[in-house]
Design a protein around this nucleic acid. Structure first.
Lengths: 158, 158
DNA sequence: TATTGTTATACTCTATAACTATA
DNA sequence: TATAGTTATAGAGTATAACAATA
């Protein structure tokens, strides 16, 4: 026999991009805030699409960079991602635990580790890329193709 | 006598938007990732400009919404910001501690609190808005005015 | 001296689950 | 039953500071 639920799990409220009847004041004019709201909306779609595997946006980015830049070390990975060494280590640890990546002693620098995908990591990354691309395409569908490439260009200037 | 430092404080590495010599693979084409990198760059400028007061982007947004929508309650604030009730409470708590906002019993619903700025909160918000606007203007300067309004429009579609 | 990785620690942000009071 | 607020708990993400090993 299963235990009866006392209450239903609370459903996540929908995120309205700029709800009516709310005064946003100065936030309306801040490009940083517009970016933040867009990011919230996109992250929600990401977690609904890919989140089931415990892979988050930062972990996905780290995984792709490790795959694309063989034998990169942690410090450089952190620089590229925009986090410090301690944070980069934490990301690599979270990919090492499920055996998606592995560290190896660097042959050229005995201080450094070299990070690369395991065979399982290779296989999982293929699936993940498909899931993330499907998510991104769904989100991108809200814009015309020419607007999308324009947006990419504008974002790249910050 | 002061204790001698053993090491210099580590400086934050610069964040290069799309560094050369790095392969980004599929990340290059994901609009979600382009947005993420732009956000990282903008957050860094925010913290360099405003962070000294302990006010973060989510706290600033909450403060403005409370100012602009008098007697809003926590749950509604959370909905607008895109977080749940528990997270909204945490935000309000962090604004209540330095006495920028205060809770009052709602006259119309004895379950609810009404949130509003204290006089100190009013005064501080004026300064904060100026700091945040200066930050945002500095960031926005990277785009021509017409590109900026275009960007705002495109971001609003997600 | 500077860099790589590590450890310890702490803080922000956010979520889930369950509880109380009220609607 | 549903909603507002609260509490306890947890986890992700990130930072700072210090240390050892190596360059």
């Amino acid at each position: 026999m299963s235990v009866e639920r006392q209450t239903e799990p609370e459903k996540q409220a929908a995120f309205e991009q700029w709800p009516d009847g709310v005064s946003f004041g100065v936030l309306r004019d801040l490009i940083g805030y517009a970016l933040r709201r867009a990011q919230i909306a996109i992250y929600r779609d990401f977690f609904a699409s890919v989140g089931a595997d415990g892979i988050t946006p930062p972990l996905f980015a780290a995984l792709v960079l490790i795959a694309e830049n063989p034998d990169i070390n942690q410090s450089r990975l952190g620089e590229i991602l925009g986090v410090n060494r301690a944070a980069a280590k934490a990301l690599v640890d979270r990919l090492t635990a499920p055996k998606l990546v592995e560290r190896q002693a660097s042959p050229s620098d005995r201080r450094a580790n070299t990070i690369r995908l395991t065979p399982e990591g290779q296989a999982r990354l293929g699936d993940l890329i498909r899931q993330v691309q499907a998510h991104d395409a769904r989100v991108a569908r809200r814009l015309a193709p020419e607007d999308l490439s324009l947006l990419r260009d504008l974002l790249g200037r910050f």
